Amino acid sequence: MSEPAPQKAPILRIEGACTNIAQYHILQGVDLEVPAGAVTMLLGRNGVGKTTTLRTIMGLWRAHRGRITFDGQEITALPTPAISRAGIGFVPEDMGIFSDLTVEENMTLAAASGPLDSARLDWIFAAFPPLKTFWKKEAGTLSGGQKQMLAIARAMAEERKLYLIDEPTKGLAPAIIATMAGALRDLKAQGASILLVEQNFGVARMLGDTCAVMDDGRTVWTGAMADLADDTSLQERLMGLSMETA
């Protein structure tokens, strides 16, 4: 009998991360691993610390305890620009686009290391056709779904090892959600790793390989996304509702 293929080391590991914001103890012990080349879903009810976890990884909020390791390097105390240069792209929940600049100018700024790669830009246009249509338009004139496409495309402007994406489908129409999901599948197929905060359980089930569930600033469950998707009682115990009814 042949031996099973060895699993890749996690590209991101968080160990006992605690983050305070002013007098509030937001993260109170987050343990999380993101396998290389996989989509990891970060799930949980509103206000449990999912966004804070992403912002702590990026160094936007500083963990006062614990350890964060990315691609074999500890990044816990690194400044945000250094974390970005190490190969992490971040799409915040508020999108972070520049409304007064054109789509082209937003994308050009996102490619910090040099001019936009034409082949990569063609791939982005194939994933998000409206961005090509409105290339010379100010980003503030785009629809909500088109702005979200631009926000994700900005993170994709350069090849990254890991993408942190915060609720990309929130408030979007089903057709736009399907476009987003297809782009993220393509990104994974290119070998990227993704940590995705998502409230849409259909999207989580479709895209997720692994999953971590948070509650009250802590990770309370980790495992295969399929295991959580197939266990209604576990969903209700961890999150208070079933994926079938969400």
Rank of each mutant, 00 (worst) to 15 (best):
M1N: 09
P4Y: 04
Q7Y: 06
I11D: 11
T19H: 08
T19I: 08
N20Y: 14
L27H: 10
Q28M: 10
G47V: 05
T56M: 02
R62I: 06
R67G: 08
P81W: 13
I83L: 00
A86N: 09
E93Q: 15
I97F: 08
F98E: 02
D100T: 13
V103K: 03
N106Y: 13
T108W: 01
A112I: 11
S113D: 14
S113T: 11
P115V: 06
L116G: 11
D117R: 05
A119T: 13
A119M: 05
W123D: 15
P129D: 04
E138R: 15
A151M: 06
M156K: 02
E158C: 10
E159R: 15
L162F: 00
L162N: 05
Y163A: 13
P168V: 04
K170A: 15
K170F: 08
G171A: 06
I176T: 12
I177D: 05
A178E: 14
M180P: 00
G182W: 04
G182V: 04
G202S: 10
A204S: 12
D216A: 15
R218L: 03
V220C: 10
W221H: 11
A226H: 11
D227T: 10
D231R: 09
S233E: 14
Q235P: 07
E236M: 12
G240C: 03
G240F: 10
S242H: 03
T245W: 06
